[in-house]
Computed example of a mutant assay.
Amino acid sequence: MSVIDILTALYFRVLNVWPDQPKHPDRDRFVLSKGHTACALYVTLAKRGFIPEEEISTFLQPHSRLNGHPNCNKVPGVETNTGPLGHGLPVAVGMAKAAKLSGAGYHTYVVTGDGEMQEGSNWEAIMAAAQFKLDNLTLIIDHNRFQQGAALAETNDLAPLRPKLEAFGWEVTEIDGNNMGEIVPALERRGSGPHCIVAHTNKGHGISFMQDRVEWHHKVPSKEQYEIALAELSEAL
């Protein structure tokens, strides 16, 4: 729920992609580095026309291609396999650098979690992106303040993130990551180097008993809880 607004903005406003040609060479690249939010990506891909909407009900079922982490060999629209945290941003830097080397015009976007930013591989990638002046790269950090088992502040608190990215030579925008009016302009911004969006979001956004509760990092709602959540989201619309 913290990332779904960002995914919606990307796939329905920002990304140049063609569901009937998922490997079109001119497509923009999107990497979901926080691969454990795969279900949100699958729903977005289905609504955009990459996969059938009825297939969503097979999520995590035996023999389903909709695994708990996205698989580029099975699901159209998935650019690279992710799951082990700290891998997606380095891959995205490689994609953006490849575009520079080949003269391609596509833009690369990558979403990481804030807990995931504790991985050292991300900061090596951040250094490389600044060195290569990758103005065709946008990093979105889903800053919902929680990771599995605890709040970010209780583990290895990286906040505030903005000055750290700026110290590495990145341009940084801070937004309300659950507000479409702020998400879209930030995603469409272009500068002279790599751009990071620190998206302040809420885990379980819009659902009273889920929001900002660490146990909902992986908890599955009951039928009754699902119905309450759906009613609350419908009322908000």
Rank of each mutant, 00 (worst) to 15 (best):
R48M: 05
R48P: 04
G49A: 00
I51S: 08
I51N: 07
P52R: 02
E55H: 05
L60D: 12
Q61Y: 07
H63R: 14
S64R: 11
S64C: 12
S64Y: 14
R65F: 08
L66N: 07
N67T: 13
H69F: 05
P70L: 01
P70R: 00
N73D: 14
V75K: 07
G77A: 05
G77H: 02
G77V: 05
G77M: 03
V78N: 07
N81Y: 07
T82W: 01
T82C: 02
G83H: 04
P84Y: 12
P84Q: 12
L85K: 03
G88D: 07
L89Y: 14
A92R: 00
V93I: 14
V93D: 10
G94W: 00
A96E: 00
A98D: 11
A98H: 13
A98W: 10
A99K: 01
K100H: 09
S102K: 15
A104D: 15
G105W: 05
Y106D: 08
Y106I: 03
H107D: 10
H107C: 11
H107Q: 14
Y109M: 06
V110N: 01
V111G: 01
G115M: 02
G115S: 04
G115L: 01
E116L: 09
M117H: 04
E119C: 08
N122M: 08
W123K: 00
A125K: 01
A125Y: 04
I126D: 01
M127L: 10
Q131N: 11
F132G: 04
F132N: 05
K133E: 10
L134P: 00
D135M: 01
D135F: 02
N136P: 08
L139E: 00
I141N: 04
I141Q: 05
D142M: 11
H143T: 10
H143R: 15
N144I: 09
Q147Y: 08
G149S: 09
G149K: 06
A150W: 09
A151H: 13
E154N: 14
T155W: 11
T155C: 12
